[in-house]
Design a protein around this nucleic acid. Sequence first.
RNA 1: GCUCACGUAGCUCAGUUGGAUAGAGCAUUACUCUCCGAAGGUAAAGGUCAAAAGUUCAAAUCUUUUCGUGAGCACCA
Length: 583
Amino acid sequence: MSIIKNIEDDITKTIIKLGYEIKHISLKPSNRPELGDYQINEAMLLAKKYGKTPYDIAYEITNELSKDDRFKNINIATPGFINISLSDKFIIKALNDMSDIKENNIDYPSKHKILIDYGGANVAKELHVGHLRSANIGEALKRLCKLLKNDVIADVHLGDWGLPLGLVIRQIKEQQPDLVYFDESYKGAYPVKSPITKEDLKSLYPLASKRKNEDENYLKEAQEITNKIQAGSPGYRALWKHIVETSKIDIKKIYEELNTSFDLWLGESDADEFVDEVVSIFKNKNLCKLDDGALIVDVKENEDKKEIPPVLLVKSNGTVGYQTTELATLYNRMKKYDLTDVWYLTDERQSLHFLQTFRAAKKAKIVPDNVNLEHLPFGTINSGEGKPFKTRDGNVMSLENLIDIVYESTLKKTNVDIVGKENLEKTARLIAIDSIKYADLLPYRTTNYVFDPEKFSDLEGKTAPYLLYSTIRMKSLLNKAKEQKINIGKYSVITTEVEKKIILMLLQLPKILLNAFNSRSLNDISEYIYNVTSMYNMFYSENKVLLCKDEDVKESWLFITNIVYNVNMLLLDVLGLFVPEKM
RNA sequence: GCUCACGUAGCUCAGUUGGAUAGAGCAUUACUCUCCGAAGGUAAAGGUCAAAAGUUCAAAUCUUUUCGUGAGCACCA
């Protein structure tokens, strides 16, 4: 158990002993630091229930707490705020205990087995800035879950089965109508080599997307092609496979660059084999009906305030759409893995879709009632005018493009004398990616934020370069100490106020992590690393560690540096940021 | 039209299980390398928390109304 939780538990017990019913008190860092390290607000909540004044209850509590030598400077402020500080002796012990972060400074939630569905790349389209959030948040959540000792499976769930593929192939047909894939009478084997390159793919979808809006027939043909792919028409299927494979290579490369990895590289197409089974489950349980030629599942509930449209299980032309694919995917997942949770990261525009499919899945018992299906929507990345970047207008900045822009400004700033000529570009690239990722993780998950390449290129202030630079500097300091054979055995003395502030902040770590886990948002962690780092930087600039004459103080300073360094490394890894050796 | 989300400093965002004097970064203006890495540090200035009413010891946070912005509303995904 963490140090902070241990104290809270003890205080809670003390209050219960006094005869008050209370679940768990929370030590909140005081927003009036001159009055104490922490504030306890529970006295005011208890007052009404027990018909006493808040002050009287606070008095009783403080009276007990003052017997505990871990605390000092206990006082009450009207109407019943309890202010409390930790004794120096305790703080010193706490920091020493933090050497074992995972044992003494992290609290673990009950164990889950979670499948996280993120990434959301579509093989027909180039990855664009809108794909950033899913990858970044999903990847960081995965890492956080692992740190908190959960089992996690990450699935990229590629979009490889819908109309976009049909559109791309329709466009190929336009440009290369003589390809053997389009010859329905052809019986031989299809070429092994793909007729399309990844460069072709970049232009195909935007062109097709434009055409589809102008030409109704074109769209119709694309839909027919989509149906043929799904029905298994050999030529289209072969071409489809080429596209998927070509695109996958490219997508994998970008995800790798983004430090994002998946356990499963399944796509919507992999659910196809379960579609019939799923449809018959609904049929057998009498959960669907024909409507306008389509097979639909009614998922309305009495408490609904709004009209919830039915799930479209089979379209009137006999094919299935993404809701059915989603259900089939879920069906397979539940069969294969013993999951407690399935989390979906998509932007908030899809929330109705997930509400519908989750209801349908539970209704048909494809998913047991006790399994937690969660849609974790994230805000859209907007342009300055407040409009989301559309994926279909073909006119969006690609992810590669964005990385390049940020890379250019990072490269200018990277000092060749420090990183060495051979590492210059590689380091700048890492920092650029980190900058983008950190800027993306900083706002709350559901916040729509304004996309501005300039913002991602900022290298000062609350940015990844700041965190990386500071962390690397800590490492450098620790290395110098090692070279001088200085032992950093223990923390024995608090010499400055900043140190105390840093330690109090470090004590908050378990709360930050649990909070992030519960809210499924990384902004708390992102903010926390910045706060710890900037507090440490203040310490760093005020105290010349290695020049300190007092050996105990020097050792203590190195000790605190080491802990902050370790915490930073741990959290930067959770966020999925690379830390270069030098920068 | 119906439903949902949002509106906090010039800009971009935190803070929303109700707590004391609403925070940060950028931009602006000063200062700070004879000393462990200045991509660093210090400070100033910047606010009727969209508006109004209500709930209570206490409201940016909860409720209602108004205004503004965005999103969703089955055969696209």
